[in-house]
């Protein structure tokens, strides 16, 4: 279930229907920028930062809408950076997107 690309003026219509079943809390300071979570994420909603770095100088992962709470990231993370949550009821893109 991979949300398609969105257009410049905001999420594509079908993207708005993306269902978000879970989320993660990321301890970006513990991260050593190894990328393992990116490849492991089944819905492919984790993306490494490019410019932002943690205080030790490592890039770290960011979450995009579409998380299913499957905990693959937590299982493969060598530095225990993920806390995984599953929503009681799935949310839509905007609800998830609006969680800032």
């Amino acid at each position: 279930m991979t949300p398609p690309e969105s257009s410049p003026d905001g999420p594509a219509p079908e993207v708005a229907e993306t269902v978000v079943r879970g989320t993660v809390v990321i301890d970006i300071e513990a991260c050593k920028g190894c990328d393992l979570c990116i490849e492991a994420c089944k819905p492919d909603v984790l993306r490494m930062t490019t410019d932002e770095r943690n205080t030790r100088g490592y890039r770290y992962p960011q979450l995009l809408p579409g998380c299913t709470g499957c905990r693959a990231c937590a299982d493969v993370c060598p530095d225990f950076c993920f806390q995984v949550w599953r929503y009681d009821t799935p949310k839509t893109w905007t609800e998830a997107g609006g969680l800032a």
Partner: peptide, 14 residues
């Protein structure tokens, strides 16, 4: 353009 979701705090409805 895809919105990055904040991941500092745990949600309270999960």
């Amino acid at each position: 353009e895809l919105r990055v979701i904040a991941t500092e705090h745990a949600p309270d409805d999960a």
